[in-house]
């Protein structure tokens, strides 16, 4: 099971965001890293068909079409803003909005309840989503994305506005998902390295690194992010401590 992207080009006006991009996403969590404006969000939107692109996207060798996107790909956009007083249960149901009839089928309801239980937020079912904390909202939207049993899950900075407890909680939940291609656009290197199976690094409209998180090093960080860093390793847990920017004239 893999999602293959072949010679993908995307531009807004004159600005080219992605150019002849080739990449294959395997089952498991892939973290999409890169600086602001490197095209992480754009790549997710391109896969979900929200922006017009040139190039091809295949799933298991077949070109993906509108129907495949609607039925098999879930996308969670950035930030939890603009949520109204719809109940958590209804928000989760909306994940499969095109299958909903006026009277919601019992099986969809049961499925929503079981997902809410699995993610540990069943007790919030009748609360309006606007009353939840940022972490809880993010989990609700994860539940929403899972209700249609997608094959591909796209998340745009799911942990960016969360405290460290909730960041780890959300990432651990993603880890529990089996048989799914999960692509996460992220900024937090340490979090990404800890929870991902693979890292894809975008820079200058293309992929500059793809590989295991273990191979990620200071030199790469310095090259892409223009930031000096120390790597720390204790009990087999690796992380980076950023110390300075390389050269301000570059910025």
């Amino acid at each position: 099971m893999a999602l293959k992207i072949q010679s993908l080009c995307l531009g807004y006006g004159r600005k080219q965001v992605l150019e002849n991009l080739d990449v294959i996403f395997q089952k498991g969590i892939t973290c999409l890293l890169g600086r602001n404006g490197a095209g992480k969000s754009s790549l997710l939107k391109a896969i979900f068909g929200l922006v017009n692109v040139q190039g091809e996207i295949f799933h298991n060798g077949k070109i993906i079409d509108r129907a495949f996107i609607r039925d098999e790909i879930s996308y969670i956009p950035q930030s939890a803003q603009a949520v109204s007083n719809i109940s958590v249960f209804d928000v989760v149901l909306l994940g499969d909005v095109f299958s909903l009839r006026f009277m919601v089928a019992e099986e969809i309801k049961e499925k929503a309840k079981s997902i809410l239980s699995a993610l540990g937020i069943r007790h919030l079912m009748h609360h309006p989503v606007s009353a939840l904390s940022g972490g809880e909202k993010q989990i609700v939207f994860l539940a929403q994305a899972l209700i249609k049993n997608p094959k591909v899950l796209l998340l745009d900075e799911p942990a960016s506005s969360l405290d460290i407890y909730n960041q780890i909680k959300v990432m651990k939940m993603l880890r529990q998902l089996k048989d799914l291609i999960v692509i996460v656009a992220a900024h937090d290197l340490n979090l990404s390295l800890k929870f991902s199976d693979e890292i894809v690094l975008l820079d200058n409209c293309n992929v500059v690194y793809q590989g295991a998180p273990e191979c990620f090093d200071n030199a790469l960080i310095e090259k892409i992010y223009q930031v000096k860093s120390h790597s720390i390793c204790e009990n087999n847990v690796r992380g980076f401590l950023y110390t300075d920017i390389v050269d301000e004239s570059h910025d």
Partner: peptide
């Protein structure tokens, strides 16, 4: 519009989220 009631509800989640639901 009643046939589209769920889609209308989804729109109240905000534009970005409604689009992310495939609307």
């Amino acid at each position: 519009v009643m046939r589209n009631a769920w889609v209308l509800t989804a729109i109240r989640l905000g534009e970005a989220r409604a689009e992310a639901l495939g609307i």
